[in-house]
Amino acid sequence: MRSWWWKILAGILICYTVIGGLLLPVPRLDILNETIRNLYFHVPMWFTMIFLFAGAFIYSIKYLSSGDLQDDIYAVQLTNTGIFFSILGMLTGMEWAQYTWGEAWSNDPKQLGTALCMLIYFAYSILRNGIKDDEKKAKISAVYNIFAFAMMIPLIFILPRMVDSLHPGNGGNPAFKKYDLDSNMRIVFYPAVIGWVLIGSWIASLKIRAGLVSFNRENEILFSFEKDKK
């Protein structure tokens, strides 16, 4: 059994987020009303996605320098888990937008930027599945992953901030931190982010380990075949 402490910590933090996020006091704002509590659940999805994509980016670079297919497994599974969290973030964001901005999709710059980013990462999966040779697949998708991460930064962090957006902290809108994210919300929001990042890493680590197990098995089989030939 690997070290369990951070997994248990993740569980405790999320439980605290669910309980504290629904029961602790929040600022009273018109239009947002109680939906301000979505901040504890919607935003951590994006933090987790960025964290996982950053991990995939690092492992893609690592693969290119080492050529070890195990690094490729890390990069792929981190990306897949990141895509999963981006879908959760997008769906929760649209649900929230439906009731506060009036419509689920309002072509908000941040929505568009994120949608583009998601499409780029979807294309990553499609690209991978289109290549049969393992080495080639790993190399091309590693290069693609690096570019995808480099595209994500301006799409999510820079472009939406340069134009008017409905999202707080962009364009003319004030950031939550100015007065909305008061100290009452911080004590739930930060643990929520840490908790969800840990949960995301856990899911990714499970997929990676499963991938490594089947990778090693295939290698054993190949190895035994080669032995038989000799």
């Binding site: 059994m1 690997r2 997994k7 949960i199 856990w202 899911i203 499970l206 380990r209 499963a210 490594l212 197990v213």
Partner: peptide, 13 residues
């Protein structure tokens, strides 16, 4: 469920 999966994978490893 995550704990269950984790244990299963540990066994497979």
């Amino acid at each position: 469920y995550l704990v269950y999966l984790d244990r299963k994978i540990t066994k497979a490893e």
